[in-house]
Design a protein around this nucleic acid. Structure first.
Lengths: 221, 221
DNA sequence: CCAAAAGTGTTGGTTTTACACCCATGG
DNA sequence: CCATGGGTGTAAAACCAACACTTTTGG
C-alpha cells in the first residue's frame, strides 16, 4: 500500500518560549488574527512544510514570530486529541525554547502581536494551549533541576546571585546563599572570569562563565 | 486559510515494547513483509486514523501486533526527519510500552512475524529504528530510576529478589541485597502479602504487592 | 559614613555505602 | 544433610541543612 492510501492529518509545530525577565518567568504568546479563537492569545506556531524537519520548522516559526533564535530548543510533546482543533484533525508537535534574559523581540511583520506574559498571570488561551503550557512548566522545572539548561538563559558572564535568582523564580522559593554557591561551585561547571559586575553602587560581584555543555544531565538542586 | 491549503505529511505511531524475560531486557520487533526494508526487522506501528487519538492508535497497533495490552504506556518522542522514510514524508509519534514478564504473544494474524529480541543483540533494523530504540532505552532507564514504572513489568505478587533482578538487568549492574531492600521498603510503596513463592527447593520468598500508582515520580535508585 | 549586595565556615543530622552470616525449604 | 536462595544490622563516610557576620563599593 502506498502512503496515499492512508488519510493524513494536518501537522503543526508549536513553540513554548520561556525567558526570565523583571524577576518573573515569562512565556511568549501571540494574539490570533483569524478564527478559530480570533483575538485570543495562543502559543506561537504554524504548519510544517514537507521539506523541513520538525526542529527546523520550530526554528523557522520562532524566527518569524520573534526575530530571535533559541538559546535552548528541544522537543516537548506531541498533542493529537481528535477534537483539539475545531477545523479538523490537527496534530501538533510542541517544542520548548529558552531565550536569554536580555534579548529583545523584533517580530518580522507588524501584523504579529507577540508579547511576554507572566506564567503566573496568563490571559485566556485558545485550543488546548493552557494544558500545553502547564506541561511545559513541569518540563522547565525538571530541566532546571537535573540539567544545565538554566545557563542558556544567562548572558555569557553572570554572577552567582543572578544564577540563584533564576532558580528562585523558577522554583518559586528561596535558596540559602551559602549552600547554593557551595553546590554550584562543587559541580565544576563554571569558572570565574577576570570581570566584575559594573555600574553598581555596592560591592561588585565576581562574574563567572559556564564551561559545561548546555543540557547536560547533572543534578543541580 | 483552511487546513487544506497546507500540505500534509503522513503520520504513523510506533510502539517500543519492552519486557524482561530470560534474565534479559527484550524488545518486540516485527519482520516487514513489504518494501521498503522488506524482510528487515522493525518497531511495530502503523498509520493513525483520523478519528482516533495518538495513544488510542498506539493501543490499537499494540493489540493488533501482539494481542496484548500494555501494562505501561506513554509517549516517547516524535521523529520527523524529512528523509526517514523513502516513500515520502512520514512523521512518527513513538510510544513506549512495558509488558509484564510472564505474558505470551498472540498476534492477530499468522502473517505477523513478531519476536522478542535482546536489546543487547539487535538484528539489522529498517528506517531510523535503531536510533529510536536507543532513545527508548535511555528513557527506560530514567523511568526505572525515578518512577515506579518498573512495577508494571512484575506480576501482582512478587519477591524483592525478582524486583532487584529487574533493576540489575536494566542497569546492567549488581546492587547490594541489604541496601536494595532497605531502600525499597523505606519508600512505602509495597506491602507484604500472605503468600510465599511456591515450588522452589529453597527457602520460599515472601511475596509483596505494589500499593503505589504506576508511573509516580519517586526516586527509587 | 551609609546603604546595598557580595562573600565566606562550621556543626548536627541524615543518608548512603560497605560488608558476612544464619535461616528455611525440598530433595 | 546438602544445596540454594532468603533474610537480616551496624559502623564509617559522605552529604545536606541551618545558620550570621564581615567586606567592598559608590555616592
Amino acid at each position: 500500500m502506498a502512503l496515499e492510501d492512508y488519510p493524513k492529518p494536518s501537522v503543526t509545530v508549536d513553540i513554548i518560549i520561556f525567558t526570565i525577565k523583571e524577576n518573573d518567568l515569562k512565556v511568549l504568546l501571540v494574539k490570533r488574527g483569524v478564527e478559530p479563537f480570533k483575538n485570543k492569545w495562543a502559543i506561537p506556531g504554524g504548519f510544517i512544510k514537507l521539506d523541513e524537519g520538525l526542529k527546523e520548522a520550530a526554528k523557522r516559526e520562532l524566527e518569524e514570530e520573534t526575530g530571535l533564535t533559541a538559546d535552548y530548543l528541544e522537543q516537548l510533546y506531541s498533542f493529537g486529541d481528535v477534537k483539539r482543533d475545531p477545523r479538523g484533525r490537527v496534530i501538533t508537535v510542541s517544542y520548548f525554547a529558552l531565550i536569554q534574559t536580555d534579548k529583545k523581540l523584533k517580530p518580522r511583520t507588524d501584523a504579529i502581536d507577540a508579547r511576554w506574559f507572566s506564567m503566573y498571570d496568563l490571559p485566556e488561551l485558545g485550543f488546548d494551549h493552557e494544558k500545553i503550557l502547564n506541561y511545559a512548566l513541569k518540563r522547565l522545572k525538571w530541566k532546571f533541576e537535573y540539567t544545565t539548561a538554566a545557563f542558556s538563559v544567562l548572558p555569557k558572564k553572570f554572577s552567582l546571585t543572578q544564577l540563584q535568582k533564576i532558580y528562585e523564580i523558577v522554583f518559586n522559593k528561596k535558596f540559602d546563599k551559602r549552600n547554593f554557591r557551595k553546590k554550584i561551585l562543587s559541580l565544576d561547571i563554571i569558572e570565574p572570569t577576570k570581570d566584575r559586575l559594573e555600574g553598581v553602587s555596592y560591592r561588585p560581584a565576581q562574574l563567572y562563565s559556564f564551561k559545561g555543555k548546555i543540557g547536560d544531565i547533572i543534578e543541580i538542586i
